[in-house]
């Protein structure tokens, strides 16, 4: 172990050795306890020298991150190489090791959020998550279209929709993933390998599950990287031959269209400030 620490401009900087492993868990825990004594709000791990990060050492850093968060502090990583970045992504640790380009960016990211609404910063994680989820789980490459505002008389064709109520300190609202029947059945086939001719109760939960995974991914990015405080939520499903969604919000819904080899579908997001 050869970690060095320094403190400047409210940042506790930890320069890591080339190999991070948990050869001596007791010594690691004692060292982390020392780091936690720093009053700096922002802690940054400098990975410039790191070429090996053994998964057995994850626990120490996950608990370090948790302890910082419990005290309203943040942990970031700078100078992460692409191989370890890929490793963290595969192991679902991008929210523990949040990468930034500089110490300035770490300070900016950690600053408290003011004024939250539906903007590009809020929408983009949902678009990215939809692409990633459908490509990984159903082998479908999506082409997102231009987001538009939904007009009261817009009739967007759909027969099934997954719905999640959004709730956080700053606003309430909902996110809705809407499919035509034909598109949904093709996506279902991509997910499970099963062919169905009609939407039945046996398969309709797929609309909720796809949305659940999209929401989970977007929520991680928004909460851990953008300062939002979205709560966990359980999805529901709406079905009907000529299904229409009406939102009891003063704000119009944002419609994000997607094209895919299974057919077109769209996301509707509506929020209202609390």
């Amino acid at each position: 172990m050869n970690y060095t620490t320094s403190e400047k401009d409210g940042v506790h900087l930890i320069t890591c050795p080339s190999a991070i492993e948990s050869a001596d868990a007791g010594a690691m825990d004692a060292m982390v306890k020392g780091w936690l004594l720093s009053s700096a709000k922002v802690h940054v791990l400098d990975f410039r020298a790191v070429t090996l990060f053994k998964p057995t050492a994850y626990r120490t850093f996950v608990l370090y991150n948790q302890a910082l968060k419990a005290n309203s502090k943040s942990l970031f990583v700078v100078n992460l190489n692409t191989e370890i970045s890929r490793q963290f992504k595969q192991d679902g640790l991008t929210s523990v090791f949040v990468t930034v380009a500089s110490l300035d960016e770490a300070l900016k990211r950690a600053a408290p959020k003011t004024g939250v609404g539906v903007d590009v910063e809020f929408i983009n994680p949902f678009i990215a998550a939809a692409r990633s989820v459908l490509e990984t789980q159903a082998q479908l490459v999506l082409t997102p279209g231009k987001p538009t505002l939904k007009k009261p008389d817009d009739k967007l064709p759909m027969e099934i929709a997954g719905v999640i109520a959004l709730s956080c300190k700053e606003f309430t609202g909902s996110i809705n993933l809407c499919f035509r029947g034909e598109t949904f059945l093709k996506i279902y086939e991509g997910l499970t390998g099963e062919k169905h001719d009609t939407i039945t109760t046996e398969i309709e939960d797929a609309a909720a599950e796809i949305l659940n995974i999209i929401f989970g991914q977007a929520k991680t990015v928004l909460n851990d990287h953008k300062g939002y405080t979205l709560d966990r939520a359980l999805p529901t499903v709406l079905t009907g031959d000529r299904l229409r969604l009406y939102h009891s919000s003063k704000n119009p819904a944002i419609v994000i269209p997607f094209d895919s080899p299974a057919g077109p579908f769209h996301l509707e997001i509506v929020v209202e400030k609390s």
Binding site: A70, G92, S95, V96, T136, G216, Q217, T220
Partner: peptide, 23 residues
């Protein structure tokens, strides 16, 4: 479906052997 740091930590503390983030 979520990989927020505090949740991963909670699972690790509770004795999970591994976790997989969907998708």
């Amino acid at each position: 479906a979520e990989s927020e740091g505090h949740q991963v930590a909670e699972a690790v503390k509770s004795g999970v052997d591994n976790y997989i983030v969907k998708p």
